[in-house]
Nucleic acid binder design. Sequence first.
DNA 1: GCACCGTTTGACAGCGCTGTCCATTCAGGC
DNA 2: GCCTGAATGGACAGCGCTGTCAAACGGTGC
Lengths: 358, 358
Amino acid sequence: MLNTYGIHRAVAYNAVMKVENPTSRDIADIAGVSQATVSRALRNSPLVRPETRDRIQKIARELNYFVNRNAAGLRTHQSNTIALLMFDETGGDDAQINPFFLSMLGYITRSAAGMGYDVLASMQQLTDDWHVEYQASHRADGLILLGYGDYVAYRRKLDALAAANTRFIIYGAVAADQPGLSLGCDNVRGGHMATAHLLGLGRRRIAILGDISKRHPEFAARHDGYVAALDDAGLEHDESLRIFADNTEEDAYRAVRAFLDSGTGFDGLFAVTDMLAIGAMHALADAGRQVPQDVSVVGFDDLPRAAYVNPPLTTIQQNIREAGEGLVKTIVGLIEGEDVASSQLEPKLIVRQSCGAL
Amino acid sequence: MLNTYGIHRAVAYNAVMKVENPTSRDIADIAGVSQATVSRALRNSPLVRPETRDRIQKIARELNYFVNRNAAGLRTHQSNTIALLMFDETGGDDAQINPFFLSMLGYITRSAAGMGYDVLASMQQLTDDWHVEYQASHRADGLILLGYGDYVAYRRKLDALAAANTRFIIYGAVAADQPGLSLGCDNVRGGHMATAHLLGLGRRRIAILGDISKRHPEFAARHDGYVAALDDAGLEHDESLRIFADNTEEDAYRAVRAFLDSGTGFDGLFAVTDMLAIGAMHALADAGRQVPQDVSVVGFDDLPRAAYVNPPLTTIQQNIREAGEGLVKTIVGLIEGEDVASSQLEPKLIVRQSCGAL
DNA sequence: GCACCGTTTGACAGCGCTGTCCATTCAGGC
DNA sequence: GCCTGAATGGACAGCGCTGTCAAACGGTGC
């Protein structure tokens, strides 16, 4: 390949000859215009005459030419890429990851593509500061964090990101003094809905299942909604109806079995996630309790499987599509200098057969 | 920010001052070496004295400097990125996507990270030639394709990729004359294992559930294994025991209900995926058939939920971890000019309670 | 003291693109 | 015919890095 201008490799182009890894200069030589004009034409600049533009674009298409993103990115100081970081703090067992994330990933990549952005995906345990690097190295213009697991453990990261001036948005976990943008479902409202539904069916002894500590702000918020609903109904909330479980099906199973063994009476159960609800329903079934007659169960998330467990699970749906699209729209807005803010999405009660009137 | 050499913005550096978006030149000025030396030091070149290297790296760390990937990529003509394209041809309902993919994604991103590569994720319906662009635009050095759905529909894409000299590897779908590299589970062997297991339990009327047409080469291969196992046992395979279903739980449910209504007798069922098996088990239960007594069921994939359905599902496990890591290792090998080849992974029979002796 | 050599560093070009500034062209008005 | 201004395209610099080549440096042996 000659690169001496004037004897450029593509000058001798004709309909037959193809250039192997064409650059905009090759296209320019073939089209008989300057390289700058090619650049403009391909970005649909109004500065080039439509006929010229079309001719150039046609040649580019024929030669399978695409703008070199490294060069463009170097020049413009942006990558048109957002990094999607999935924090996996459940202990590293991939098989247990909430399939919810996969749907989200789909909506995120598609709506990012629609806005001209690529998505760099990463799933890791928390190590030191790998996440700061994405923006500093110009690989991504902004970050979306899908935190899953222990909030306390990654709160430090949020502070580090904020300190490094990184543009980021976090899904779900929202604590009052948290830096950066966030988007999540209105967990308080969701918890309220779930509990109010059980109350509406005449249930009075409603247990809550999950880790509602500060480690999981979203679960804690669901608990707040639960308490508020009880309060609205004029009921005290009974601390003995709190069942702790890590967010896995197995742990929920164990916890509910143990709770049943303890003999505490209850007629309703609000599990802070569907995975927990499903584990709980197995435990109830294995202990000979009828769902929904003896105990009515409400979950949270509306996993695909929620509709197929036995009985089908009443749950609170997070609008995954809105969430994914909202995350992208917000982070892109932040990148492009618009005025954006954190927001919450409305949860929705999905009624199925795991709840019944007393 | 002054960029005139000699009055460079970072020249006046002292322990307190920090540069905002440092470049290697800033580091050089501060360290009192040339920019080239900084570049070398950060890549651990043996050409720089260890003390100099350490000093430079320390400064870089302090200033939160990271190599600009666009600039490096422009210079070296590579991006150290692989694109992961998830073909979604199931009709676009994200909720039904196989959670299998999510685990895979985890292994892929982690092993890519371990080899110094980032992963660009994309989930799309098939459009024209978007996937060719990744390499041509220097956004990715190679592609991993996780095809899901209709093979016929994306076979055209594989040919286009091959024609454009794109480096790619496809997971799962393997047809004899297919271009490019592939890695998948040995589906014939898996189908054989599943069927042989049922035969070993005394089952003789074994139905097969799924779309085993050429649209799904991996399912067709599982069917081949099924036929081979029957053959090994001296049994004819009975075409009336083929139950067609799209790869969703609901469709499997409907198909099996219809099959039961048709009155064809059977005592074993090999579902070509776990999702199908789960739908089938619901259908059997709702029709009053006992699993495993009346009908023993084997699935394929070993989804996380397979262990938690009722009864727990006997299935063929694809080693997702090996698969994810193998895909990355192979595509990186291809990118870096090593001698790599397509390969198949050994499936494994996971025995649970959905099968029993007759 | 000097030529020689290995080690370490610096100077420099240029990867392919975009944005700025300048040159050319042409239509229309005088 | 000449001037003006809009429309169109070209020249050029430089984004931040890496690889090549050459220079400087500090021993070593004669």
